[in-house]
């Protein structure tokens, strides 16, 4: 049996609440499992459309929420087993490829230098390695539009900050462990900041509120400051070291 076939037969259904079932695949961050999660969502939407209130896909699981006054756990479970029998071996990315521009610099990414010195590589190499791989959108949550992307080059793996920042600006490109993300809005945050992305990750006014969905592939592409500003990026006010300017102070 191949590893993938093994997983196909190894999903698990667990009660989560009065109108909720959890579908679990293996408890691992793995593109093959993520592809199964995505496929399962498509199959479940088709099979259970009328009774489904929402689906919450994540790394290796899907939370299925149904209307408890129109169906019940038994019926939903039977329908899930029926439709999940159609899960297929697939290593294909069925999502789209999205390129996100990033202005990497010590000005826009205050933790770049820290990562470089911790890993004993140059800032340029941190930037190069972050762009070198394509990332999968494993989950969206925490805040509207916050996409968990993986996996980051092991050399760039960084723990979360011991003390989270009170304010991370909108568009901040960040690393935590082997995950990377773009902050969709200004918020507190404990990830390591390496640049700024001018693309709005969550725009409630737009027809498509988010440029990415779970299962998509993301590539980061370096841009310079002028391009960043041209694309609508805004440099947040940074706390700069206080300089004594001759002429303005005694």
């Amino acid at each position: 049996m191949t590893r993938l076939q093994h997983q196909l037969n190894q999903y698990q259904l667990t009660v989560a609440g009065e109108n909720a079932l959890m579908l679990y695949f293996d408890q691992r961050i793995d593109p093959v499992i993520s592809a199964l999660v995505q496929q399962a969502c498509t199959l479940i939407r088709a099979e259970l459309a009328e009774d489904i209130i929402d689906l919450l896909p994540s790394y290796a699981s899907v939370l299925i929420l149904f209307n408890p006054l129109s169906t019940d756990h038994y019926r939903v479970q039977a329908q899930l087993q029926h439709c999940l029998a159609h899960l297929q071996n697939s290593n294909q990315h069925s999502g789209k490829l999205v390129e996100l521009p990033v202005y990497y610099s010590t000005e826009s990414g205050p933790d770049l230098a820290l990562i470089a010195s911790t890993k004993n590589i140059s800032v340029a190499e941190v930037i190069q390695r972050h762009q070198a791989v394509s990332y999968r959108v494993y989950a969206i949550g925490f805040a509207p539009g916050f996409a968990y992307l993986g996996e980051v080059d092991p050399l760039l793996q960084m723990p979360r900050l011991a003390t989270p920042r009170a304010k991370v600006p909108r568009g901040a490109v960040a690393i935590a462990d082997r995950q990377t993300a773009v902050y969709p809005a200004a918020s507190p945050g404990g990830w390591n900041l390496i640049g700024l992305c001018p693309t709005r990750m969550f725009n409630p006014a737009a027809e498509h509120a988010m440029p990415v969905a779970v299962g998509d592939e993301v590539r980061f592409v370096a841009i310079d400051k002028a391009e960043f500003l041209r694309l609508g990026g805004e440099l947040p006010e940074l706390e700069l070291p206080k300089l004594e300017c001759s002429g303005t102070k005694p």
């Binding site: 408890q27 961050i29 919450l56 896909p57 790394y59 699981s61 939370l63």
Partner: peptide, 11 residues
């Protein structure tokens, strides 16, 4: 250790 997963009302 638990991978992040969907949270239903009342969890």
């Amino acid at each position: 250790q638990l991978l992040s997963e969907g949270i239903c009302y009342g969890s």
